[in-house]
């Protein structure tokens, strides 16, 4: 496929038509276009056929579905921020959205777009990984449900097969009393590609950690779960020893690189600092809840 040749464009009216179109050679989906247009402007459209799925009804809407929140893949970040279900039921995702890019980007950038673009610094995807979110991936021949954590492999590399489209994103509703905290590097509230981001979701029984999911962003090829730290925390109280051990485990497990946004050592320091902040805040949260 010659990327220098101008691609064709379709905006199908139905999901079925979109899936058919995506089966063509060199076809790819775009939603808001905030990632794709950067490449297109640089003369690298990278596709022979661009299929606009932003307005497909099946990819829109946010609804409660039992213990889950069901969101359309083309839900924009601005829609996430406005939605009371997300604010109450997935505060971690809401916090990530609040620190995402800028208001001008949020009206177009979508949830599925962020997942499929698979930047190691992707903030929304980080929150989804921490929350244990799943996606529904459709093709002309069927659909499958995949955990987000298993779907993203590395920079711009996901499990999305040719002809597939992420139609829905499902996020577990936060348990009552759950603690959610999104920490992100930088001097700005938003408009920042994270040098480091840490997404934490925890539940407690009294003082004891019942579940802990900590995801680290921009310190590995893909958003990663700090599994060693999570193991340290499981069924423990957040005393000083446990916190120190979890912080150390998270910092040790991540593999940041040196780049223009920071050195590897500084990023490890930030991981440690952010995990500590989250755990101390979680401890206060658990104490207040009693």
């Amino acid at each position: 496929m010659n990327a220098a040749v101008a691609p064709r464009y379709l905006r199908p009216a139905t999901l079925g038509a979109a899936l058919d179109a995506l089966g063509a050679p060199g076809a790819r989906a775009i939603a808001g276009g905030t990632d794709w247009m950067v490449d297109a402007r640089a003369g690298r459209p990278g596709a022979a056929l661009v299929v606009n799925v932003l307005r497909l009804a099946e990819l829109r809407g946010i609804a409660a579905d039992g213990a889950w929140i069901d969101l359309g893949g083309a839900t924009t970040v601005a829609e996430l921020l406005r939605d009371p279900l997300v604010r109450a039921g997935a505060p971690l995702l809401w916090q990530a959205a609040d620190r995402f890019a800028s208001p001008l980007v949020r009206t177009r950038a979508t949830l599925a777009g962020n997942v499929c673009n698979a930047s190691p610094a992707a903030d929304l995807t980080l929150a989804l990984v921490a929350l244990g979110a799943e996606i529904d991936v459709h093709s002309a021949s069927g659909c499958r449900r995949v955990p987000v954590a298993a779907f993203v492999f590395g920079p711009r590399h996901t499990d999305l097969q040719h002809g597939e489209l992420v139609v829905r994103v499902r996020v577990p509703v936060a348990a009552a009393g759950a603690f959610h905290r999104f920490e992100k590097s930088g001097t700005r509230p938003a408009l920042e590609i994270s040098a480091v981001a840490v997404a934490t979701a925890m539940t407690f029984s009294g003082h004891v950690v019942r579940s802990a999911r900590i995801a680290l962003g921009a310190v590995a090829p893909r958003p990663m779960l700090a599994t060693s730290a999570m193991a340290v925390l499981q069924d423990q109280c957040l005393d000083e020893r446990t916190v120190d051990a979890a912080v150390l485990a998270a910092a040790t497990q991540c593999q940041p690189i040196d780049d223009v946004r920071g050195s590897a050592r500084y990023r490890k320091r930030l991981v440690a600092a952010f995990v500590r902040r989250a755990l101390l805040a979680a401890r206060s949260h658990a104490e207040e809840a009693r």
């Binding site: 808001g32 661009v50 001008l104 980007v105 009206t107 177009r108």
Partner: peptide, 29 residues
């Protein structure tokens, strides 16, 4: 900037602010 970082290209789409440089013209339809 042409990269979505400065906001100088902002326009309103259906009442919401968006970046003119990163919105495909085709999606103005």
């Amino acid at each position: 900037c042409g990269e979505g970082e400065c906001g100088a290209c902002a326009i309103l789409l259906d009442g919401q602010a968006a970046l003119g440089c990163l919105t495909p013209a085709a999606d103005l339809d």
